[in-house]
Amino acid sequence: MRVDLLSREYPPHVYGGAGVHADQLSRQLRRLVDLRVHCFGEPRPQPYVTAHRTPAELAGANPALQAMGIAPAMAAAAAGADVVHSHTWYANIAGHLAKLLHGTAHVLTAHSLEPLRPWKAEQLGGGYALSSYCERTAVLGADRVIAVSGAMRDDLLRCYPELGPDRIAVVHNGIDTDEFRPVSDTSQLIPLGIRTDRPTVACVARLTRQKGLLHLLRAAPYLIPGTQLVMCVSAPDTVELADEFSAIAEEVTERGADLVIVREPLSREALRQLLSYAGVFACPSVYEPMGIVNLEAMACGTPVVATAVGGIPEVVTDGETGLLVPFAAGPGSGGEPADAEAFAKDFAVRVNELLADPQRSRRMGRAGRRRAADRFSWASIAAQVHEIYRSVV
């Protein structure tokens, strides 16, 4: 069986969870099918990977229109595939075109949903209407839709009621517990300005509103004094958001927060070291269909404090592998908390619970490592995806 996997991101250019998913899933699928990968950007060295550039005529166009411009080339290149498997709206429309053009079965993995990310209009402008169109068209036309969590399945049915429940399968994101494991080395942290002589809370995320990073900044002054908050943030959606983040970071630092900001993506080893060294991993997302980074922290033996939204409660077991923070969105808030200050304080309270009880934290970290290994292996996830391919051919 030939399967063409379509994704905007693919190594070495990976900036989010969907790119990690495409990378890890493809490694396992290559053992099961004749896999070809199509991605955006510059040529890749692997013979089974084809990269597609933005057409020259669209070089200065809206980013959403650029993505749509790449879709026809991706669809044409998928000729001969038995299944096309697309990831995120950037590539979903290419999968839909391949289905129409070649009669190929289209499997779509939903990593997030545009109707639930209204802040994307801040980044894409009118392109948000285009991305929403691409997603809706592809979701409703796909042969099967894979939801990365049970919560995502519920969101799909709510946002796209025309989509029959029998066309949706739930297959969680996964984790490579050989790659993500507890390590004792901290040599790569010190050059980043991270001190290894004090209690540390870590957060690693793209700088986008859905990750709730501004709320974690506001929680920083309420952390136990002497706690170092390390925030690794990269790929800001907009210059305005980056400026807002910097302004709040300066404000909370003046209030006494011990804050370290790393703005470049971490190397894999530096990420392992940070997740292993931190006493708590913080995930303040206001929208999170699954959250691979929580699995990465758990696999490194670190307890997680996270917002109880989306698929996070399916990963982080409250009171066992970490603590969940209740979340209530305000009406007409675009997904932001009804009371931002109360949310920040509640988040800090739960982080402080674990900082104040290292023995409990270590126990949760060990439980998280076991849960990641037992429930979320990529080999198991690839086998489930392979069965879905077989069902549509």
Score class of each variant (00 low, 15 high):
R2L: 06
A67K: 03
G279W: 00
F343P: 06
E269G: 03
F327N: 02
G310E: 00
Q188E: 15
G193F: 03
F347Q: 09
A73T: 08
G80M: 01
G226R: 01
A299G: 07
F376V: 03
A59W: 05
P12H: 12
H38S: 09
A51C: 09
C283I: 09
Y222L: 14
I190K: 14
P265V: 13
V14H: 01
G334W: 02
A22C: 15
P72R: 04
N173E: 07
F327S: 01
R158H: 12
V252Q: 06
Q384F: 01
L355K: 03
G310I: 01
H386I: 00
V280D: 00
R167Y: 09
A147R: 05
A383L: 13
A205I: 00
L207I: 07
V171T: 02
A91P: 10
D258P: 07
V14W: 05
L32I: 14
A382C: 06
G174C: 07
K120R: 13
L97V: 00
R350E: 01
P326Y: 02
Y277R: 09
G279T: 04
I312M: 10
L29S: 11
M231N: 11
D82W: 04
P284L: 02
A247K: 15
I381Q: 08
N92G: 12
G322C: 05
T238W: 09
E114W: 10
R117H: 07
A242T: 14
S112Y: 05
D166Y: 11
V286S: 03
P161T: 03
K345I: 11
R36Y: 01
A79E: 13
F180H: 05
A379P: 08
M364C: 06
D258Y: 07
C159G: 08
S333W: 03
H386E: 10
S361F: 13
R158K: 14
Q28E: 15
G193Q: 06
A56I: 10
I312K: 11
M290W: 10
T109M: 05
H21E: 10
A383K: 13
S267Q: 04
L189R: 10
I381Y: 00
I70Y: 00
G125F: 09
T137L: 09
I168P: 01
T54S: 08
T109L: 05
S86H: 04
V349R: 13
G127V: 06
G150M: 02
E264G: 02
D4M: 02
D82N: 14
H172T: 13
G226P: 08
V392P: 14
S267K: 14
V260L: 12
A308C: 15
V304Q: 06
A151K: 14
A81N: 06
A247P: 04
S246V: 10
A51E: 00
L295S: 00
R366V: 12
R53M: 12
D339L: 08
G330P: 01
V239L: 09
P337I: 13
E57Q: 15
G256P: 06
R206E: 12
I388V: 14
A342V: 10
